[in-house]
């Protein structure tokens, strides 16, 4: 898509905004609609739109596949490790009260933030990895055929 000037400029403007919005949705999820799942998808959309307009090589320089593959597993690990931390704190698995023994509410707040972060990381990783997998196959038809 080398020839689409408008698309390229608008994409450059949009990508930053989309990433910012993803972080907002991620960490503001307790107060407004949103959370890890949505934030992960929006974050992935930022990389996908960049990849579509500027080409796969460019986006893979920014966000290399090995990092994506690590993120896939890292998110689930963050989630599961949260549960194990609360086990060590003498509470039930995934009982977030452990993060702040005197104010269980604050602990819940922290726990939800951490867990949602784990979810977000995994979802971003999966969506970007799936996009890379589809896009890195040699296409069967050229752009003009569409």
């Amino acid at each position: 898509m080398r020839h689409h000037l408008i698309l390229r400029v608008i994409t450059k403007l949009l990508v930053g905004t989309i990433v910012l919005f993803a972080f907002y949705v991620q960490f503001h999820g307790d107060f407004s609609p949103g959370g890890g799942f949505q934030a992960g998808v929006i974050m992935a959309v930022a990389f996908i739109i960049y990849g579509i307009v500027f080409g796969l090589e460019k986006v893979q320089q920014v966000f290399p596949p090995w990092l994506v593959h690590k993120m896939l597993a890292l998110g689930v690990l963050i989630y599961a490790a949260t549960g194990i931390v609360s086990l060590f704190g003498g509470m039930h698995y995934l009982d977030y009260g452990v993060f702040s023994p005197h104010h269980p509410e604050h602990g819940q707040h922290w726990g939800i933030l951490i867990v949602e972060f784990g979810v977000g990381v995994t979802v971003t990783g999966v969506m970007v990895a799936v996009y890379y997998a589809f896009a890195s196959r040699p296409p069967r038809m050229s752009d003009e055929e569409w």
């Binding site: 949103g34 819940q108 707040h109 949602e116």
Partner: peptide, 14 residues
Amino acid sequence: EIGVPNVVTAILAS
């Protein structure tokens, strides 16, 4: 118990 305004998030994560 949770103190999070968005009930959906509270149920989902906790």
